[in-house]
Design a protein around this nucleic acid. Sequence first.
DNA 1: TCGATAATATCCCAATTTGGGATATTTTTA
DNA 2: TAAAAATATCCCAAATTGGGATATTATCGA
Lengths: 69, 69
Amino acid sequence: MRLKELRKKKGISQLKLAIDCNMNQNTISRYETGEREADYETLIRFADYFDVSVDYLLERTNNPTFLKN
Amino acid sequence: MRLKELRKKKGISQLKLAIDCNMNQNTISRYETGEREADYETLIRFADYFDVSVDYLLERTNNPTFLKN
DNA sequence: TCGATAATATCCCAATTTGGGATATTTTTA
DNA sequence: TAAAAATATCCCAAATTGGGATATTATCGA
């Protein structure tokens, strides 16, 4: 997940992101290190929060068929 | 997940999809009914298999910022 | 229409994964 | 360089997972 990159770009801490998205800081940390996967609801919440596509969030933008749908 | 719709359009059974994607038929059934969520690896495997974006798979195409990234 | 077969859904369960509180570690700042 | 902020890790109970087995439903040919 491109979570850390997006968060840094936005210039906020894990704690602020956690509060904004209604979850725990350590949970954010785990998503960023790839230790755990967020469920779909959370995934989409992040995409909305950073105003990016889920494909981008999942580092899938280089997929040749990305723009098909 | 738009799994059932994509599978139907392709004209294949849950069993064939399961075999092609190396998993169990009942697992497919659960994803289709929304009872359970596939992990990211599986999600992306489906997207590749059906040649669609993950956003589309997650029924997120109508999101206004979909094409931002 | 009915019986056979294919397709899909559900039950059960052990194993894995989850998130949160607490805390340790690392980084930043004054 | 001490204090504070930021991030990572430990522990654990609870939730979620996938698979085997099987039940239910749909489809089709005789």
